[in-house]
């Protein structure tokens, strides 16, 4: 008997998963690979449950999830005027919090959690680094204060961060010209 077609739940956007592995012998662009794209809830979970947990990646690796067509780099025209809400984690949090925070970030993206400002979202990146992992949501226009701060407030709430914790938004233009420790926050929530 023929199987009934399974109903799927389409997402607002098609998303692309990118993987970066730091191999110093190759140019940076060669280390960044598009893994796959998806545009349904079901395909998101199929992908998520079949790839390595972020906490198990080796140092120097990144996962990026961006709207299809946007490359996960400052230079992309959809990113270059934007910035990122940055979450920096302690070394200990890789084991206790990292995977849950990354999953929550992904659910915010694919579920369009930022209401009318979800259109401002370009994607999200997780950096696995020995000195401390980072998660960020990238938005397309750093000067759009209303949208950026709305996204920041919702994101902080969704991550379950204490009101005492402050997270910052950095414009890519500032990040690109300064070392990370010196990049000033354009907004905080």
């Amino acid at each position: 008997a023929a199987l009934e077609p399974v109903e799927t739940h389409p997402l607002q956007s098609r998303w692309a998963l990118w993987f970066f592995k730091n191999m110093k012998s190759q140019p940076w662009q060669c280390n960044l690979r598009l893994v796959t794209t998806f545009n349904t809830v079901e395909d998101f979970w199929a992908l998520h449950t079949h790839i390595q947990l972020a906490s198990k990646l080796s140092s120097g690796c990144d996962y990026s999830i961006f709207k299809d067509g946007i490359e996960p780099m400052w230079e992309d025209s959809r990113n270059k005027r934007g910035g990122r809400w940055l979450i920096t984690l302690s070394k200990q949090q890789r084991h206790s919090d990292l995977d849950a925070l990354w999953l929550e970030t992904l659910l915010c993206l694919i579920g369009e959690a930022f209401d009318e400002y979800s259109e401002e979202v370009c994607g999200a990146v997780i950096n696995i680094r020995a000195k401390g992992d980072k998660i960020a949501i990238w938005t397309r226009e750093a000067e759009n204060r209303e949208a950026v701060t709305y996204i920041g407030r919702v994101y902080k709430e969704r991550l379950g961060l204490s009101s005492k914790v402050v997270i910052g938004y950095q414009a890519h233009a500032d990040t690109a010209t300064k070392s990370s420790s010196l990049t000033k926050n354009k907004f905080v929530v």
Binding site: V41, W45, A46, H48, T49, L107, G111
Partner: peptide, 20 residues
Amino acid sequence: EKKSYDREFLLGFQFIVASM
């Protein structure tokens, strides 16, 4: 129509898909 989903709805599909 904008397709938005809350977290509980999305999480509800996690193990259904994983078991397929």
